[in-house]
């Protein structure tokens, strides 16, 4: 692994953005970028190709051979026999309420923290921020006990509540900073017109925060959807497992059948891929928002 900044900046400085002579450095730049991206994505492409082959073909000829046949049957098999359909449905049943809960509760705290001065404001803000950086492994045992004591263990709710609680720190942080950038005069004007504080939150600040919410929601969707450890800990019933945990059952079921396993993994990744491609702008917005100003 090498790093490139020095040479690359050189090429910038030489040309500047305005003039574009096709210089050799420019060609080298493209060769480098294209080459790099291809190599970078090779495991991904390799996985796709594998999923379209049969295990017998790979066993006999190795991966680096021309496929004797292309087959799509691994996907429907993983979908049905591997139960990926059930697991994916569970993932949605868990992710969507968790996402809404996270956004809603975070927006409440974010509003309070962004728009009011009160004793404890900073402290609460720091608690949230510190929480986002917690290695959550420290919570595993107690949350397991807690969800067991509350009767939530082995239900969707155990995961939903845990995700909401755990993601709230990050969301509050982002939304609070977003709300801070809204002009305060709007609120003051509304207050004079007799709007209630709730009305201000709900009818004025929330609509203006939609871009921030969209960004953070896209990001949170993938984070919650991709969770593995909590699912491993809090769900025991196979029919309730989200797809990340279900993959391990799938792997147990098809052990040495790589095409099947990889096909299942790719199916599992599909929703987040779709969200990413469709909502790219928000997604990247969320990342940069989260990184503070």
């Amino acid at each position: 692994m090498t790093t490139h900044p020095p040479t690359m900046t050189k090429s910038t400085a030489m040309e500047g953005p305005k003039t574009k002579p096709i210089s050799t450095t420019r060609i080298l730049l493209y060769v480098f970028i294209i080459g790099f991206t291809l190599v970078y994505m090779a495991p991904f492409f390799g996985a796709i190709i594998t999923s379209l082959r049969t295990q017998d073909d790979i066993t006999l000829n190795g991966f680096w051979s021309i496929p004797t046949a292309i087959t799509f049957e691994n996907y429907p098999r993983a979908w049905e026999q591997g139960n990926v359909n059930r697991y994916l449905l569970n993932s949605f049943i868990i992710t969507i309420p968790a996402l809404i809960g996270t956004i809603f509760l975070s927006s409440l705290s974010a509003f309070a923290l962004a728009r009011y001065k009160f004793p404890g404001n900073q402290l609460i803000y720091f608690i949230y921020v510190a929480g986002t950086m917690l290695p959550f492994q420290i919570l595993i045992l107690p949350i397991f006990l807690l969800s067991n004591a509350t009767g939530l263990y082995n239900t969707y709710w155990s995961l939903i509540v845990t995700h909401v609680a755990f993601q709230m720190g990050f969301c509050t942080f982002v939304l609070r900073n977003f709300m801070k950038t809204l002009p305060g005069e709007i609120m003051d004007a509304a207050r004079i017109d007799g709007a209630s504080e709730w009305g201000i939150y709900w009818k004025i600040v929330m609509p203006l925060t939609v871009p921030g919410i969209a960004a953070v929601a896209t990001l949170e969707f993938t984070w919650i959807f991709n969770d593995y450890l909590w699912a491993l800990m809090l769900i025991q019933d196979d029919s309730l497992k989200p797809v990340t945990a279900g993959l391990s059952t799938l792997q147990g079921q098809f052990i040495t059948n790589w095409p099947m396993i990889v096909a299942g993994a790719l199916l599992a990744a599909l929703p987040t891929l779709i969200v990413f491609f469709a909502l790219q702008r928000y997604f990247i917005g969320g990342l940069t928002l989260g990184s503070g100003k």
């Binding site: 991709n226 990340t244 790589w258 990744a269 987040t272």
Partner: peptide
Amino acid sequence: VLSLPVIGLIWAWV
């Protein structure tokens, strides 16, 4: 965008 178990499976194969 991929979940870590998916990354793990892909790389275990790699």
